[in-house]
């Protein structure tokens, strides 16, 4: 897909969303959902960048998200760092963790990478709940319940004033996804595609798989960390409950709905999934079951997700055999 078309789809989506407060600005519930959509759009897009474009089957997205949220909260609560700076530091810290996780992954085959990255997710819960977490200020199993909101020039962005916070989230989401767009369409993106097609051939042309894969780990975990930090300051509280499997599954649904490797489909995927989740809420216990069935059906019938509708036949992923 061309840069122009991607940018158009993104611009259109964000433009539509930006107009939403005109109609629903005074409905807290919907504003909150929209902000969450924007947050998930970034997390899901990062997942798509690492999985769909770079071909690294990473399962560490939720873990990076939580690391970002926790580190920013700890910086601002315990060390008194202003929230905006704490978010940036949290992003850098998460990127560092991302690189550390990425290093051992680079030599591994798909399911192994998934396992190692998911292992980070699995170990994070006991770590944050245990003595080590407590010493770092994670609040143990209670979590951190008093995270200060983001303040810029004395103006605070929190769940108390949702419309300005919404626009803050929108700008942040636009910035993050713009970075992803630029990366995909840059020299990097081409390198990823080459690596995905044939790693040996790409390497013979001097494309270093190692370098690019490590860079994509750093970048996606940086963005995920920043948006995770924003999440913490926005909600005002975080706990290890973020690491339960529910969020993981929802994010996965977003990526599938948006189309794997079909950026900016994940942005649409995030909105569609969250809205579908809310519409299905009256189903209660059946909701999660329906979401699961939906994933199976979508993967089988609509392998490019909703982006399948935008693709020209020639661009659609051709079956290999």
């Amino acid at each position: 897909m061309s840069f122009k078309r991607m940018a158009t789809i993104m611009g259109g989506t964000f433009g539509l969303v930006a107009a939403a407060p005109l109609f629903v600005g005074d409905i807290r519930f919907i504003m909150h959902i929209l902000i969450m959509c924007l947050i998930w759009a970034v997390v899901a897009s990062c997942w798509d960048l690492i999985m769909g474009f770079a071909g690294i089957f990473s399962f560490g997205q939720v873990a990076f998200f939580a690391i970002g949220a926790y580190s920013s909260a700890i910086f601002s609560v315990n060390l008194g760092v202003p929230a905006v700076l704490a978010m940036l530091l949290a992003g850098l810290f998460t990127a560092l963790i991302g690189v550390l996780v990425g290093l051992p992954c680079l030599k591994l085959a798909g399911p192994y990478v998934a396992l190692v990255t998911f292992g980070v997710h699995m170990t994070l819960m006991p770590l944050l709940r245990g003595k080590i977490g407590m010493a770092l200020g994670s609040g143990g199993s209670v979590g951190i319940l008093t995270i200060p909101p983001i303040r810029i020039f004395g103006y605070s962005f929190s769940s108390a004033n949702l419309v300005p916070t919404f626009y803050f989230a929108l700008l942040l989401a636009m910035a993050c996804t713009a970075v992803i767009l630029v990366v995909i369409k840059s020299h990097w993106g081409t390198a990823f595609l080459a690596l995905k097609d044939s790693e040996d051939f790409a390497m013979s042309l001097g494309v270093s798989a190692f370098k690019y894969k490590l860079m994509v780990f750093a970048l996606t975990s940086f963005l995920t960390g920043v948006i995770g930090a924003f999440y913490g300051h926005y909600i005002g509280m975080i706990s290890t409950r973020m690491l339960e499997l529910d969020l993981f599954c929802t994010l996965m649904v977003m990526v599938v709905v948006g189309g794997i490797g079909m950026f900016p489909g994940t942005i649409l995927g995030a909105f569609i999934t969250v809205i579908a989740n809310e519409l299905l809420a009256p189903l209660g216990t059946y909701r999660a079951m329906v979401m699961g069935a939906l994933v199976v059906i979508l993967v089988l019938l609509l392998p490019n997700g909703v982006m399948g509708f935008w693709l020209k036949p020639a661009e659609a992923e051709a079956p290999a055999a």
Partner: peptide, 8 residues
């Protein structure tokens, strides 16, 4: 992805 959905 499909089997994850199936598990859910």
């Amino acid at each position: 992805m499909m089997t994850l959905g199936l598990a859910l």
